[in-house]
């Protein structure tokens, strides 16, 4: 079964002044609900997660929970675990007005890693990298497509976009990270 599952770019990676890599499949679940709901807090609490503050991120183990809008969260997890987690969240929220749906396959995830990772982001997104803290999910655009970025490590930025434009985003990252393109 697993050989049938292919991420958009199957781990394509390029070495420039930083390394840009398509990070393979990632489990993702969209949760739309009243973010103040006790049932939601309880359901997420069962996973060790708490509801993040606006634009924030909370984490537990390999699970990450990001605030996406006033009534939307994104839960990232192991790809194979996503359907099960979504099902249990759905069940826990069955008495509420809520929508829980797996979107793992709709996305592509990239990492930009290296001490100058910020410089790649500076070239493709209207983001003030100096004021992008760890623990913040920043939704913006990568050149011409929608993207969400966050600091996923000391010298690493993660970027998520729609699956269909993964090739475009890889192109952006590769050209922006090319050697000689260091800004400072």
């Amino acid at each position: 079964m697993s050989e049938m599952i292919l991420s958009a770019l199957q781990g394509e990676s390029h070495e420039g002044f930083v390394t840009v890599t398509e990070a393979g499949v990632t489990g993702m679940i969209t949760i739309r609900a009243d973010l103040g709901s006790a049932a939601l807090a309880a359901a997420l609490g069962g996973l060790g997660l708490s509801v993040p503050s606006p634009r924030g991120i909370t984490q537990a183990g390999d699970k990450l929970l990001a605030w996406m809008s006033p009534d939307e969260l994104l839960l990232a997890c192991d790809y194979g675990a996503a359907p099960g987690i979504a099902e249990s969240l759905s069940a826990a929220l069955s008495g509420e007005h809520a929508l829980v749906v797996v979107v793992s396959d709709a996305r592509a995830r990239f990492t930009i890693s290296g001490p100058k990772a910020d410089e790649v982001l500076m070239k493709i997104a209207p983001v003030d990298v100096a004021t992008l803290p760890a623990g913040r999910m920043h939704r913006t655009r990568a050149a011409q497509v929608a993207a969400a970025v966050w600091r996923s490590g000391p010298d690493e930025i993660s970027l998520v976009c729609f699956r269909s434009v993964a090739g475009y985003v890889m192109g952006l990252l590769e050209v922006s990270a090319r050697k000689g393109g260091e800004i400072f």
């Binding site: 739309r32 749906v101 396959d105």
Partner: peptide, 11 residues
Amino acid sequence: KVYTANLTEQY
């Protein structure tokens, strides 16, 4: 009370 989700690329 309505939520929408664009699942175009999920499938």
